[in-house]
Amino acid sequence: MINEITYLCIFIFGLSPSILSQELILIIHKDSRFKSIATKDIKYIFLGKLKKIKDLNIIPITLKIGKVHDIFFDKFIKKNARQFSRFLKKLLFTGRGKPPKSYKSK
C-alpha cells in the first residue's frame, strides 16, 4: 500500500535532466497496479482536485526547487515555478486545500 500511495513522488524524483532534454519519462513503482496514467490526472492531483485513482489514495510529493521541479510543473501542470508557488499559497491561505509536501532533495 505504501508503495502505491507514494508512487507519485517517484514521478518527480525519477526524472533526470538529461532525459528531459530529449523526452519526459515518468516512472511508476514496479509494484504499482497502474500501467498508465492520464496527463490531466497528474495535473489534477497536483492542483488538489484529484485525491484518488481507482479507489487508491494519492499523496503527491514534490521537490522544493530545482530544474527537475521546474520542468515537471511546466510540462504537466502548465505553470512556471512562481505561478505554481502562488497557486499553492492561494490554496493554503484561503482554506481550499493543503499543498503537497515538498522536500529539498531526492
Binding site: 502562488r86 499559497k89 492561494k90 491561505f93 484561503t94 481550499r96
Partner: peptide, 9 residues
C-alpha cells in the same frame, strides 16, 4: 476575492 487578504498572491 478569495485571495484578497493575501497580498503575495
Amino acid at each position: 476575492n478569495q485571495g484578497r487578504d493575501v497580498d503575495m498572491l
